[in-house]
Nucleic acid binder design. Structure first.
Lengths: 187, 187
DNA sequence: AATAAAAGAAAACAAATTGTTTGTTATCAA
DNA sequence: TTGATAACAAACAATTTGTTTTCTTTTATT
């Protein structure tokens, strides 16, 4: 990609992030993004069709590598390979979040965090779905599989939301223990 | 309240609901609401300060009575009074939703359903919180109580979302059974 | 039935936002 | 070096927002 394009893209992402830390998504205007990023009006629209489009792109940029890195992790271990194994997929995800390579946390700690977590949940759903298929687990209960998949990814996302809103006082390992406690009985 | 006010309020709510069935919340303009409701511009702003304000009012109108009626229910039984009792609080809530006295379902089956369910979750959180306090339950695990409360209300809302998106194929009783299966081990 | 108070309507308003177009300049990659 | 590409500024029509002003209609009360 053209070096100029990279710069503008980065500038717009940065401006958008800055604004999201200040105010909610719905109150941010394209105009403000343009001003903050200090790019021409035409330039913005050459990169993104709408504000929603920008949000989507940012989410992909942010969650893409976390998810794919986690996917590698699930190839070696399962969702919860071993009842005592410290490296569960969920712990992995939480650690990634806490390391915060791409300043995700600032974004997640904002009024519009739910917006981001919806994207996150979609990716998560696929990931967990695959796990179920691969492990080819038989249901001891007669609860539908997609209910369980939704329950797990949903609970995880709600937990992250709770974690963030509570100013992330717990370590990823602690959280993972809580999550195991409420999810393992189901599996 | 003045009969005229009631009528306008109802007209605006109806218009808003109609529009929500067509398009997402963020794309609905105050102008459209005014046109659809067939009320004067001044009138709208006399009732609601902003579109967000309207949304909030609608949510209170919709969920208010469901929650309070459920509150009565929790006074007699607990969250899950008896392991075999059919009338759990959750089943109660789901039945209320399905009966759909106030056409909530049309609203929940729209692009912006998550918006409504956020309001719902807040009410739910209080309700469950109170249950915990009243029952004065001792934790056999060392999982924090507010984690559990969030887990339960979060899971419930995610389940309802899943239910609605899947076109509500399950009965409230079925759903309640699923929910018990994944939640009771935690309690 | 008369009346004062309250609510609604219509029109106009400035200010801001959106998405597009046009012509020009700067930067990149080969 | 040069052709292609991206960025820019300025202007644009259309739309939206929230407010103000004036006038009409509907209530509730006497």
């Amino acid at each position: 990609m053209d070096r100029r394009q990279q710069k503008t893209r980065a500038a717009i992402f940065a401006a958008f992030s800055t604004l999201l830390a200040e105010k909610s998504y719905s109150k941010i205007t394209v105009q403000e993004i343009i001003d903050t990023a200090n790019v021409g009006r035409t330039t913005f629209y050459a990169h993104f069709e709408t504000k929603d489009d920008l949000l989507k792109a940012l989410c992909e940029e942010l969650f893409g590598h976390i998810i794919s890195s986690t996917l590698d992790c699930t190839h070696t271990h399962g969702l919860y390979s071993d009842r005592n194994a410290p490296e569960s997929v969920f712990c992995h995800l939480l650690q990634h979040l806490q390391e915060d390579e791409k300043n995700i946390l600032e974004l997640l700690y904002c009024e519009s965090s739910e917006l981001f977590l919806r994207y996150f949940k979609d990716s998560l759903n696929e990931l967990i779905q695959n796990q179920f298929v691969n492990q080819n687990r038989k249901n001891n209960t007669d609860i539908p599989q997609d209910f369980l998949v939704n329950h797990i990814s949903g609970s995880f996302v709600e937990m992250v939301l709770w974690w963030i809103k509570g100013r992330m006082k717990q370590t990823p390992e602690e959280l993972d223990r809580y999550f195991r406690a409420v999810i393992e009985p189901v599996l």
